[in-house]
């Protein structure tokens, strides 16, 4: 292994703001397109009629993740410690 000697090629597509902007727009379009079919198809439900609402799984995923992030943030206040916390072993 001697990666220092050969200069690796640098690919920096993601560092250009206009590319990030394109990605974002693409991402939003994909999000919108994913919900559209829900309005035109019959959806099966497992436990509750709520599941048949258009965009149910989109909302489910979004809300779950927001809750998970907020809960872990809260837990983090109690459980995050400095990296050398155990170092005096």
């Amino acid at each position: 292994m001697d990666p220092e000697n050969k200069k690796p090629e640098v690919w920096d597509w993601f560092d250009h703001p206009q590319n990030i902007k394109r990605l974002k727009i693409g991402f939003y379009i994909v999000l919108a397109l994913l919900v559209v079919p829900d309005f035109f198809m019959h959806k099966h439900t497992l436990f509750s009629p709520v599941e048949a609402w258009p965009g149910f799984f989109a909302a489910f995923g979004f809300i779950s993740c927001v809750v998970i992030i907020l809960v872990s943030k809260l837990i983090g206040f109690a459980l995050k410690v400095r990296e050398d916390y155990y170092d005096d072993e």
Partner: peptide, 17 residues
Amino acid sequence: FEHTINQFQLLMFSALA
């Protein structure tokens, strides 16, 4: 189709979050 679209929704909106 339904299951796949549900899964895509779940994941992509998680990414949004």
